[in-house]
């Protein structure tokens, strides 16, 4: 390269640096712009997903409400009428039939109670009337009556610590967990804890069932429903399970989070 004087060197150095600089600045600006758009896109996608999930859950709640009304107003009423009809039947000459009749009336009574309880638990709005703890207790009683497992329920829960909409979520999650225990766990004892303070509500459900390998087993729809519901209310789900050692699910809900 030939030797050049300072002035001749300076101008091309400045010019080429400026040129390179401009091009690099443009590319960096493009990357920043792209990342901004990427963030917006991600936020929009998350918001859309949340809205979709919320709508899905609202539809589910509405459907459950309809089923609950149908159970209470229609099936429950029919069962009550059948019970009344059976009660006024006079079977004097055949004592064996009378025994059968009384049995049927007893069974029908149970059926009516079950229908009422089921109708109660399906309708989320009932939480407003009875509160989360009472509703959970009704469900636990029904599970206990099925004779499958013993339930130990501890609670230090203040209704005011958690918004009503979130209480519906917690209630549905309890039902989902119990559904899983009934179907898969083969547990003999289940411990449920609900605790709350101004900042946080914690739900913990532990069973002594067969458990499963969390690394091996694919997530079922029950667990995915739980995760979706947790995501919607910004709750943290923690699941621990080992084969033969039961399963423990802890859900922590931030009371102030929207």
């Amino acid at each position: 390269m030939k030797r050049m004087n300072d002035e001749n060197v300076l101008i091309p150095v400045i010019a080429s640096t400026l040129l390179m600089g401009m091009i690099i600045v443009f590319v960096i600006y493009f990357i920043i712009l792209y990342r901004k758009k990427q963030r917006n896109f991600q936020q929009e996608r998350d918001a859309f997903k949340q809205a979709l999930l919320k709508t899905e859950i609202e539809i589910k709640e509405q459907t459950l409400g309809n089923v609950s009304r149908e159970l209470h107003d229609n099936l429950g009423q029919i069962a009550a009428l059948v019970k009344i009809n059976l009660s006024i039947l006079k079977i004097e000459k055949e004592p064996e039939n009378e025994l059968l009749l009384n049995d049927s009336i007893g069974l029908l009574k149970n059926l009516i109670t079950d229908i009422k309880d089921l109708s109660l638990s399906l309708k989320g709005e009932n939480l407003n009337r009875f509160g989360l703890i009472k509703m959970a207790e009704i469900d636990f009683k029904r599970c206990h009556n099925m004779g499958k497992f013993k339930i130990l329920f501890e609670h230090e829960f203040n209704e005011e610590d958690l918004a009503f909409e979130k209480q519906i979520f917690v209630y549905r999650m309890i039902q989902e967990i119990f559904n899983n225990i009934l179907n898969h766990a083969r547990a003999t004892e289940v411990k449920v804890q609900i605790r709350s303070n101004l900042n946080q509500t914690t739900l913990k459900v532990q069973d002594n069932g067969v458990g499963f390998d969390t690394a091996q087993q694919a997530k079922g729809s029950g667990l995915m429903n739980l995760e979706e519901r947790c995501r919607l209310i910004n709750a943290e789900l923690n699941l621990k399970s080992e084969v033969g050692l039961g399963t423990s699910i802890t859900i922590q809900i931030n009371s102030n989070a929207s």
Binding site: M1, K2, M4, N8, V9, I11, P12, V13, A15, S16, L19, M20, I23, F26
Partner: peptide, 21 residues
């Protein structure tokens, strides 16, 4: 981007003293 600018706008860069740069 560089080529376009050099050939289109920076004719000065192509004078013999600057050709190496």
């Amino acid at each position: 981007g560089i080529t376009f600018n050099i050939f289109a706008f920076f004719n000065y860069l192509y004078i013999p003293e600057n050709i190496d740069w």
